[in-house]
């Protein structure tokens, strides 16, 4: 997902800032912390940090795994659906299901309010291409939830109480 420049040898990449998922994973919650007493807190940053944590550990992860094994067609040797495709749909901004809500919320935030480069264009592309690739499980919902990334905050708040009360 990150656009990367290859080093001469080819085994080490340098992620560019457009690979925000990479960047977030590397920098969030890392680095030297100074005491809150001498820190000034800025609202945008606090929210981003909280959102990204929700993506990293949540019931979403379980639902994605369930989807991954459910999609396997064990009777057909040439079935090509699985995790790679799941990742593809997860990162493609698909309007597909509630399992994508939180991730999209953060992506929206990250890409949406930037005025600098071509992220907006890229996102439009991703969104439109995802419409064609709806999976069997949720194709009936695809049209009604076309704008699901906009409503990500509501799907997020729905997912939370469920996860805490009913993990059996």
């Amino acid at each position: 997902m990150a656009a990367v420049a290859h080093s001469p040898r080819g085994y080490l990449d340098r992620p560019r800032p457009s690979g925000l998922a990479d960047v977030l994973e590397i920098i969030l919650d890392k680095g030297i912390v100074i005491d809150a007493y001498v820190r000034v807190s800025l609202v945008g940053i606090e929210l981003l940090t909280i959102d990204a944590r929700i993506v990293i550990a949540s019931v979403d992860t379980y639902l994605r795994f369930a989807e991954a094994v459910n999609r396997l067609d064990l009777t057909e040797a040439d079935d090509s659906e699985g995790l790679p495709e799941l990742m593809e749909s997860m990162t493609s901004g698909g309007a597909k299901s509630k399992t994508q809500g939180a991730l999209e919320g953060v992506k929206e935030k990250l890409f949406g309010d930037d005025d600098g480069d071509d992220d907006n264009g890229k996102q439009r592309q991703r969104r439109s291409s995802s419409r064609g690739s709806s999976s069997r499980g949720s194709s009936s919902k695809a049209s009604s939830s076309r704008s699901s990334s906009r409503s990500s905050s509501s799907s997020r708040s729905r997912a939370k109480p469920r996860s805490s009360g009913n993990s059996k």
Binding site: R14, I27, I45, L47, L48, T49, L110, D114, G116
Partner: peptide, 27 residues
Amino acid sequence: AAKAVREHWRVLDAAVENATVLPLRFG
């Protein structure tokens, strides 16, 4: 937030080219 993340990354990325850097926590 998005700009802040990018800036944080860019600056430390540039700094590490020539120096040993102690990154502070984002934000």
